[in-house]
């Protein structure tokens, strides 16, 4: 009945190939190994990171390099007032122009990466260490500890993030450490919940049961068996968490509540400096260059982070 089913005369060779195919097929079904003559590259298609990812990584590496070595790089002095005239448009001398005090916007933007990335990086590491430890312990031991930790996370998440940050920064000196810690505390609950959830999954697995049967102590099971498995999803979300932290620091800085002092240059602070109506009208570049650099950096963190998340097949979290 079908048009494409015409019987054709084929030689022995092709019949042999068909036979082999049937057998190969059975083998594949049972062993679930790679299919030798099938389209086996689809795994690779899903697991490729893509050009966009590498572009984002390049941007981030450059920014990190600048942040680390800004004082040694040939930038203008970012704090020098009256470097040239105030509110000058971008020129060959000052690529991003100058701000209301005649400071070099390009140099300040580059130096601004220092605090943003330092705070972002510290915060996520703090969140991973503290939140990760609490989450793993809660997920492994369950019971009372789990309830207490879960409740603590719940309470931490009950504050709007920026409001909790304000509560802390309002009572303490606004040093780099305090600001980093504040934002790090914000990261504890989301990261901890993730660590707890993945621990719950792995604690049920056979290899953990096997380790227990073999007489391994809890500490050993946690460090040797659970930690490596829980670190993967946590690590996969590092960049995404860092993006959130960088934005949080920016928001604090925008409100004048990030690291205090003139030497502490931050993107948020630069943006608020240039966001007055007069500056925005007449010297748009003062606000827009830091906005652009910050946007691209956060975009790069989000994009690379999302790709890594997909690569390791970790579910999205609602921060």
């Amino acid at each position: 009945m079908s048009g494409d089913g015409r019987p054709s005369r084929k030689g022995r060779a092709s019949r042999q190939r068909l036979l082999r195919r049937f057998r190969v097929f059975r083998l594949v079904r049972s062993s679930k190994g790679p299919e030798p003559d099938g389209p086996g590259e689809n795994e690779a298609v899903r697991r490729r990171l893509g050009v966009g990812f590498w572009l984002a990584v390049v941007w981030l590496v450059v920014m990190a390099f600048i942040a680390l070595f800004a004082p040694m790089l040939p930038f203008a002095d970012p704090t020098k007032v009256g470097y040239s005239g105030p509110r000058e448009p971008p020129s060959a001398g000052a690529w991003f122009g100058t701000d209301a005090l005649g400071r070099d916007v390009f140099s300040r933007t580059m130096h601004g990466a220092r605090i943003s990335l330092a705070v972002g990086g510290f915060a996520i590491v703090f969140g991973m260490v503290v939140g990760g430890a609490l989450g793993i312990l809660a997920g492994y031991f369950r019971g009372r500890l789990d309830q207490a930790v879960g409740f603590t996370f719940f309470v931490l998440l009950s504050f709007p993030a920026l409001v909790l940050a304000i509560l802390i920064t309002a009572t303490l000196e606004r040093s780099l450490l305090v600001v980093s810690l504040t934002i790090g505390i914000l990261a504890v609950a989301p990261v901890g919940l993730l660590a707890r959830a993945s621990t719950l999954v792995y604690a049920e697995r056979e290899f953990v049961a096997a380790a227990r049967v073999l007489g391994a102590r809890n500490g050993r099971i946690i460090v040797r068996e659970l930690l490596p498995n829980v670190v993967i999803p946590m690590g996969a979300l590092t960049l995404l968490g860092m993006a959130v932290a960088v934005v949080a620091e920016g928001s604090l800085a925008f409100l004048g509540l990030s690291v205090a002092g003139d030497e502490a240059i931050s993107w948020g602070k630069m943006i608020v400096d240039g966001a007055g109506l007069r500056d925005l009208q007449n010297a748009t570049h003062v606000a827009m260059f830091p906005v652009a650099v910050m946007f691209v950096t956060v975009l790069a963190l989000n994009f690379a982070g999302d790709r890594i998340r997909q690569y390791f097949d970790v579910k999205e979290l609602a921060f």
């Binding site: 009945m1 079908s2 494409d4 089913g5 015409r6 019987p7 054709s8 005369r9 084929k10 019949r15 068909l18 036979l19």
Partner: peptide
């Protein structure tokens, strides 16, 4: 049977 799809 391996030489093409039999027709209805």
């Amino acid at each position: 049977c391996l030489d093409g799809v039999p027709e209805l």
